[in-house]
């Protein structure tokens, strides 16, 4: 197991030759290749739908990527609310015996329709489409995009850049303390 806090010199990380470094046991690890592939995927979704705006977050509400007209959207807030919305909807489905493997919420608006869909266990898509866009077409594309996104993050790139983190057990507390003190204006 790699231990990126263990070296007082902040050495490069790659302990196990059989597997790339810095893969989280839980949650998502996004490498630059993942980021590029997910960006392309979202771009294709936005073009083919067409959708004025699309956002990808993880299931705990952390923004991963977005495409389209950002407008005045507060993306950080939006990602957390999208995750909350999906989680609440899934729980409603569970309580009413309607839970299924994949979940999609449609919200019809005066100008746009909004879709929230899960993509595997870890990812969520939020997509706005024009009212004129056929719902079935949008649904098909969103679900396809979700499946592709799952495949992308499942794959660990063959070439992973070595990361040199200047961090160790001894200075971690100080670094965090300093970072929070800098943030705090009292």
């Amino acid at each position: 197991m790699s231990d990126f806090l263990s070296s007082s010199q902040g050495s490069a990380i790659n302990v196990d030759a059989d597997r790339p470094s810095l893969v989280l046991r839980t949650g998502i690890t996004l490498y630059p290749d993942h980021e590029r592939a997910l960006d392309t995927l979202l771009e294709q979704l936005v073009e083919r739908c067409p959708a004025p705006f699309a956002l990808m977050a993880d299931s705990s509400g952390q923004l991963i990527s977005y495409k389209g007209e950002r407008g005045k959207h507060d993306l950080i807030a939006l990602a957390s609310l999208v995750a909350g919305d999906l989680a609440a909807s899934q729980e409603i489905a569970r309580l009413t015996g309607e839970l299924q493997a994949s979940h999609l919420i449609l919200r019809e608006g005066p100008k746009y329709n909004s879709f929230i869909a899960d993509a595997g266990e870890n990812l969520i898509l939020f997509v706005q489409t024009a009212r004129e866009t056929p719902l079935g077409w949008a649904r098909l594309l969103i679900q396809y995009t979700g499946r592709q996104a799952v495949n992308i993050i499942k794959t660990v790139p063959a070439q992973v850049e070595e990361i040199n983190l200047e961090i160790n057990k001894d200075n971690l507390s100080d670094l965090i303390g300093d970072a929070l003190d800098d943030l705090w204006i009292g």
């Binding site: 807030a77 957390s80 909350g84 200047e166 961090i167 300093d178 970072a179 929070l180 943030l183």
Partner: peptide
């Protein structure tokens, strides 16, 4: 349901914790 706030710290060991 919830309250939510994101903080962005300065770099720690080359990473920006949010």
């Amino acid at each position: 349901f919830f309250d939510f706030l994101q903080l962005e710290l300065g770099k720690i060991g080359g990473l920006t914790p949010k």
